[in-house]
Amino acid sequence: MTPEDARRLALALPDVVERDHHGFPSFRTGRRGRIFATLPTPEVLRVMLDEGPIREAVAEWPWCREGWWGRRLMTVEVVLAEAEQDAVAELLAEGHARAAG
């Protein structure tokens, strides 16, 4: 996958906008514009999920890794070059639902 593929998948979800987040793209949803994914580099997509789904993704797909913010597990990091599009779409949909809820 490419960053453009990830962008296309994120923007295909309902009520999603792309905005800058510290110099890189973020994807937001809901009235408050909560971030559910970011593209911090051309190689990595970060999807904000709860701890359980992050650990499940890392266990299931070798192109996923844990993303920590200090001592808190916050994201699943997707190595785009190795990622499967259908699975990334699933992760993005889950992150979107979490942020919109």
Results as ranks from 00 to 15, higher is better:
11 L>V: 05
33 G>Y: 08
17 V>W: 05
88 V>M: 07
6 A>T: 06
58 V>I: 06
74 M>N: 00
16 V>M: 02
19 R>A: 14
47 V>C: 02
2 T>K: 01
50 D>C: 15
88 V>T: 09
52 G>K: 15
43 E>V: 06
48 M>Q: 11
32 R>E: 11
69 W>A: 13
4 E>S: 06
86 D>H: 07
23 G>M: 06
96 H>V: 08
30 G>V: 03
93 A>T: 05
83 A>D: 13
57 A>K: 11
80 L>V: 09
92 L>D: 05
26 S>K: 08
82 E>N: 13
38 T>L: 03
16 V>Y: 05
94 E>S: 14
9 L>N: 04
51 E>S: 15
86 D>L: 09
22 H>K: 08
64 C>E: 03
88 V>F: 03
92 L>A: 06
93 A>F: 02
96 H>D: 09
75 T>C: 15
18 E>N: 11
68 W>D: 04
91 L>Q: 10
85 Q>D: 09
100 A>Q: 15
28 R>P: 04
56 E>C: 12
92 L>M: 07
32 R>P: 05
44 V>F: 04
71 R>T: 05
58 V>P: 04
87 A>G: 13
10 A>I: 11
78 V>R: 00
36 F>I: 02
37 A>P: 02
23 G>F: 05
64 C>T: 04
16 V>K: 01
85 Q>S: 10
48 M>R: 13
77 E>M: 12
58 V>E: 05
37 A>R: 03
83 A>N: 12
15 D>M: 01
57 A>R: 10
85 Q>T: 14
66 E>L: 04
97 A>C: 14
12 A>D: 10
73 L>K: 08
79 V>F: 09
73 L>P: 11
5 D>T: 04
32 R>T: 12
97 A>S: 14
21 H>T: 13
61 W>D: 12
86 D>V: 09
36 F>H: 04
50 D>I: 15
